[in-house]
């Protein structure tokens, strides 16, 4: 551990302040190109369509716990123990942190909830039919699992929309 620290030059990860959100921005096209290229990679490796959604979901899932930790720390949020406040936290605070806007939370019967975002980031320049929104579904699933809520997340497109 010590040798590791010594090896690091100035200005790297350990010196970064994570408490405030970084102001740096990148072009949305850069994100879309990256995402599109990743989808192409996935399709090349696992050629059928079912898989691509599962894989994007899995990739998004990796982000969940990290995002939850980061945003809770920054916003000094308490841990949510009930599902409704938790989802509320996701659809407002986390959404704002990630995408700069909030989404609307919908309640369906039998313990089902929906988060509606009329223009998800992953579908902006990429055909929504490819199921890119599964990535965001994966993020939500990751966050919920990290917060100890067991769940399944499905993405639906109702016109241009995801839930």
């Amino acid at each position: 551990m010590e040798s590791r620290l010594l090896r690091r030059p100035v200005g790297t990860i350990l010196e970064r302040n994570v408490a405030t959100k970084s102001k740096a921005e990148v072009n949305l096209h850069a994100f879309s190109l990256l995402f599109g290229s990743y989808m192409e990679y996935t399709l090349r490796r696992f050629p059928d369509q079912q898989n691509i959604e599962r894989r994007l979901d899995e990739t998004g899932y990796r982000l969940g716990p990290r995002i939850l930790e980061l945003v809770s720390f920054r916003e000094r949020a308490n841990r949510q123990l009930k599902i409704q406040p938790m989802l509320n936290f996701i659809s407002t605070t986390i959404w704002r942190n990630l995408f700069g806007k909030s989404a609307s939370l919908l309640k369906f019967p039998r313990g089902t909830w929906g988060i509606r975002d009329s223009e998800p980031l992953t579908n902006k320049y990429i055909s929504p039919n490819l199921g890119g929104a599964a990535f965001i579904g994966g993020i939500i699933r990751g966050i919920l699992c990290a917060a100890n809520f067991e769940c399944t997340v499905a993405c639906h497109q109702i016109a241009p929309e995801k839930g």
């Binding site: 959100k21 970084s22 740096a24 921005e25 990148v26 072009n27 949305l28 096209h29 850069a30 994100f31 990256l34 995402f35 990743y38 990679y41 894989r55 899995e58 990739t59 998004g60 990796r62 982000l63 990290r66 995002i67 980061l70 942190n97 990630l98 995408f99 700069g100 980031l121 902006k124 990535f135």
Partner: peptide, 20 residues
Amino acid sequence: ADKINSEIFSLTYGAMVAQI
């Protein structure tokens, strides 16, 4: 250009690299 926060960009890229 339309822009997004760089953190979501780098987190996404990180997840992709990890998956690959």
